[in-house]
């Protein structure tokens, strides 16, 4: 039995101008050009997108959950980065 040797690509789609590209799934293709064409056929059959990105899944560098503490916790104690930290008098609070 022959197995499939095509590479795995992740697909990102911008659904409307002005919005971010959003991850929608993945597909198999031989190269970037073919991945882009298949992304069009497989993920935008109902005009879901105006722009498509594809990238090799292997090229993604992802954070591990084990790192989560060192990655995200340090920002937990920096409430001064958030707008709600600053209480202003009512007349000017709608800033």
């Amino acid at each position: 039995m022959t197995t499939e040797k095509l590479e795995l690509f992740e697909v990102f789609i911008r659904s409307k101008r002005g919005l971010d590209h959003k991850h929608v799934g993945s597909l198999h293709a031989e190269d970037h050009a073919q991945a882009l064409e298949y992304a069009r056929d497989c993920y935008t059959r109902r005009s879901e997108g105006v722009s498509i990105w594809v990238m090799k899944s292997n090229d993604i560098c992802a954070s591990q959950e084990d790192d989560a503490e060192s990655f995200y916790d340090p920002s937990d104690d920096k409430p001064y980065r958030h707008a709600t930290y600053y209480v202003l008098p009512d007349p000017v609070n709608n800033m």
Binding site: E4, L6, H28, E37, Y38, D41, C42
Partner: peptide, 11 residues
């Protein structure tokens, strides 16, 4: 020959 092509040729 594979799933992606099946979908694409259908179009």
């Amino acid at each position: 020959p594979f799933l992606e092509e099946d979908i694409a040729y259908g179009n």
